[in-house]
């Protein structure tokens, strides 16, 4: 056994997915309960700026004297919350479009596919930058741009799943037995699709966090003083040489959450693998 295969086996044994679930739950629990009202995330205290860690400020303070830990935890709520909102909106818009395009076919399908091709011709980041640049900076516009970029993926995936499933005899038999298109969609096709959507969504989760953070970092997303992680990175840029820890904290937070989300997505993808699903 090669070294690589051996280490992969050991990683599988270690149940990294379980660790990442626990990590996400613990982070969420801390973010939503711990230190709930101890500090105000936007309250400045210029006399105590760039302070070292103390009991009152476990991670020190930033360039305006705000408590870093409080901002970091609020940032978790914001970053994760925003990406969940964007994800939900993309799924809610994408799935019905995909179902319609797959089942109806004809001009509905063709029109939809051309729009999708148009979106897919550019990298996600570029479209998001252009859109939020056009609409003006701000977290609302950024989320709108991200949803507009992401829904296409869901619609395309649902469409292709529908197209392969509709060919199968059980759909024909359901039609023969007089079920309406809507019932077939809901009872015989949707359960197939939900698994795939779940996998794609969990893989996208990390990507969307990165997208929000990176666009906030270049000033197109959340604006100061919002404690969004990307915006925090941006704010601490001028103090990088004297106080590098100001950039390390939000950076590490992003890495941890994105990594956990990706590992979880990979696990779900293996778990929902269609080829393994229908074996006697």
């Amino acid at each position: 056994m090669s070294v690589l295969a051996h280490s992969q086996k050991r990683i599988k044994k270690a149940k990294v997915w379980l660790i990442s679930i626990i990590l996400l739950i613990v982070l969420a629990a801390i973010a939503y309960t711990f230190l709930y009202l101890k500090h105000d995330a936007t309250m400045t205290d210029v006399g105590n700026r760039l302070a070292s860690p103390t009991w009152g400020h476990p991670l020190g303070t930033d360039h305006l004297g705000r408590d870093v830990l409080t901002r970091l935890l609020l940032g978790f709520r914001l970053t994760v919350g925003y990406s969940l909102i964007a994800l939900a909106a993309a799924v809610i818009i994408g799935v019905p479009f995909g179902l319609m395009a797959g089942l109806r076919g004809g001009w509905v399908d063709r029109l939809f596919m051309r729009i999708a091709d148009g979106f897919l011709a550019f990298p996600d980041t570029v479209i998001a930058i252009v859109l939020s640049g056009l609409l003006g900076p701000g977290i609302g516009n950024l989320l709108f741009a991200i949803v507009l970029v992401k829904w296409v993926n869901y619609a395309r995936m649902v469409r292709s799943t529908v197209l392969t499933e509709v060919q199968k005899d059980y759909v024909t038999i359901a039609r023969i037995n007089g079920l309406s298109t809507f019932t077939i969609m809901r009872k015989h096709l949707l359960p197939h699709i939900i698994g795939n959507v779940l996998v794609l969504a969990s893989l996208d989760f990390g990507k969307i966090i990165l997208l929000i953070s990176s666009l906030s970092y270049i000033g197109l997303g959340a604006q100061p003083p919002t404690p969004e992680w990307g915006a925090m990175l941006n704010e601490s840029r001028p103090y990088f040489q004297a106080n590098p820890e100001m950039m390390v904290y939000p950076g590490l937070a992003i890495v941890a959450v994105v990594l956990a989300a990706n590992v979880l997505g990979d696990y779900l993808r293996d778990k929902f693998d269609v080829k393994k699903e229908v074996q006697p």
Binding site: K168, D169, Y170, T172, I173, A174, R175, I176, N177, G178, L179, S180, K187, H188, P191, H192, E277, V278
Partner: peptide
């Protein structure tokens, strides 16, 4: 047509594995 299907006309196919929705 939907009322007629199943009640008046019914089918059996060659591919018996594909004749049933796998999760029902």
């Amino acid at each position: 047509m939907n009322q007629l299907r199943g009640k008046a006309i019914s089918y059996i196919f060659q591919d018996y594995h594909g004749s049933f929705t796998p999760f029902l």
